[in-house]
Amino acid sequence: MLNKLTVWFLPALAALLAFVSHAQAATPTVADLLAKIDANMTYDTRESFITMRVTKSDRVKEYKMHSYGRGQDEAAIEYLAPSRDEGTKMLKNATELWMWLPSVEKTQKISGHMLRQGMMGSDMSYEDMMDAARWQTMYTGVVSGEETVDGRKCWKVELTATATDVSYPKRIIWVDESAYIPVKQELYALSGTLLKTWTMSDIRTVGNRQFPFKMTVVDEVQTGSMTELIFDKVTFAIPLQEEVFSTRWLER
C-alpha cells in the first residue's frame, strides 16, 4: 500500500517538500525518507565489480564478484574469485533466488531453510538480500530525530514490522540528510536484541547521485563475525540485454 503512495502521491509530496525544504530543514516523514532512499539507490541498470571480505574470528576470506542490477529487485551476480568459486552464479528477482554452480551445471532454486543461510558463509543471508529493498511494504515507522553518524548529519528512523513474519521485527536506520543513503542500519530481534549492524560508507558522487562504495555487516551476537562489501567499480545506466536477468544467463 505504501508502494502505491510512492507511485503517485509522493511526487506531489516531494515537490511540496522540495519547496518547503529549501525554506527550512523540516523533519521529513518516514514515507518521504524511504522514497528518497529508494530514488537514490534504485537504478535502471547498473554494473559493479565487488570484493566481499568475510571475517570469522581469525579467518578472513575474500571473494570477487561481478554483478548486474536492475530496479529494486533484480540482480545477477557472478563470482570471479577465488578460483574455487569462479563461475558460480546467482540470480535474484522479486520473489525468487537461483543459483548455478559450474560443478553441477544445473540451475537450483534456493528456498526454505537455505534462504536463511549466509551467502558464501557471510553475515548477509540470502533472505537479507531478498528483503533488502522491501522496507516499504514490510514496515511502518517514525522519524525520531537527528544524529550525526560518521561526520554526517542523519535522520534517525525507527521502523517496526507490520506483519509477524518479517525477519527483522525492528530496524533503526540513520539516513544521511543530503545523500539519502542509509549510512547505518541496526537490525533487531523481536526482543529488542541487536542482531546485525549494516553500515554504508565511502560515499562518492557518481554522475548526479551519491553511492556508498563500501558496505559492512557486523554480527552483533557472535563476536568477531563481519562481512565487508567493497565496490571496486560501479557503472550506471548501462545497456543490458534482457536475458541477463533470466535463468538463461545462469546457464550460459
Partner: peptide, 14 residues
C-alpha cells in the same frame, strides 16, 4: 549433493 567447503562456500557435486 549440496554442501559446503571447509570455508563455508557453497559446494555442490553432481
Amino acid at each position: 549433493l549440496d554442501g559446503q567447503t571447509q570455508d563455508g562456500s557453497i559446494s555442490a557435486v553432481k
